[in-house]
């Protein structure tokens, strides 16, 4: 392997690590946050998370310049596993308890009353199967389009909740009661970060994860 490729791998590993840290920093501050460990940084976890995203994107530039093909392969693989895995994880509690999820959907005050339960039943299934299919099948484009559409729907729902000053919780990963407006903001920022790799995946050719490394088209 050429030294340029090894250096590209190092940049990609660092970038992926930082992006993962930023999502954990923003979404699970009690468990993973770096900023929560320091009293001075406690109120700046959103800023720390966004700084990590910016740094992660900055590291992609030298990686792609050093070895474009290898970097694209690493980015495609990690994006598929990361985003697909996240959707599978997010769907699990909603599938186990549709009633509690329907309550979370209702607090957004966005959907007509008759459609809330149908939405609460259907959406987690779509998250689970589209997430699994993104990782395990070759239908990258189709699944990325479905997941991007879901991200857009979540972004619109969260943005209107922030706009209307609703004290809601995202309902993305766990079931909690209504929280402050700041939590809706945090979920909104996380979705605005994660939609970009999902949209990028929609531009990639359809192939399995193994096919990505064999360079197969279809």
């Amino acid at each position: 392997m050429k030294p340029r490729s090894i250096l590209a791998i190092v940049f990609m590993v660092l970038s992926t690590h930082l992006l993962l840290l930023s999502i954990l920093e923003i979404s699970f501050p009690g468990t993973f946050s770096i900023s929560m460990r320091s009293e001075n940084l406690k109120h700046f976890r959103m800023h720390v998370g966004i700084a990590e995203v910016v740094l992660a994107i900055a590291l992609l530039i030298p990686a792609f310049r050093l070895d474009r093909t290898l970097s694209a392969r690493i980015l495609e693989s990690t994006s598929r596993v990361g985003i697909g895995g996240m959707f599978v994880f997010a769907s699990w509690f909603k599938i186990q308890n549709p009633q509690a999820f329907a309550l979370l959907v209702a607090q957004y005050q966005m959907l007509p009353q008759w459609s809330i339960n149908l939405f609460a039943l259907f959406t987690p299934q779509l998250e689970l199967w589209a997430g699994l299919a993104l990782v395990l099948t070759k239908w990258t484009r189709e699944m990325s389009i479905v997941l991007s559409a879901m991200f857009i729907a979540f972004i619109v729902a969260l943005a209107q909740a922030v706009w209307r000053d609703l004290g809601i919780t995202c309902g993305c990963f766990e079931m909690e009661g209504a929280l402050s407006k700041k939590d809706a903001w945090i979920s909104l920022v996380r979705d605005l970060i994660l939609i970009w790799p999902t949209l990028w995946l929609a531009t990639r050719p359809n192939r399995t994860l193994i096919g990505v490394w064999r360079g197969r088209e279809q």
Partner: peptide, 17 residues
């Protein structure tokens, strides 16, 4: 899935909370 889950977690087909 709605038929599978325990009755306390089930939702009606139409309507919402």
């Amino acid at each position: 899935n709605n038929l599978r889950v325990p009755s306390e977690c089930r939702v009606s087909w139409f309507g919402g909370q």
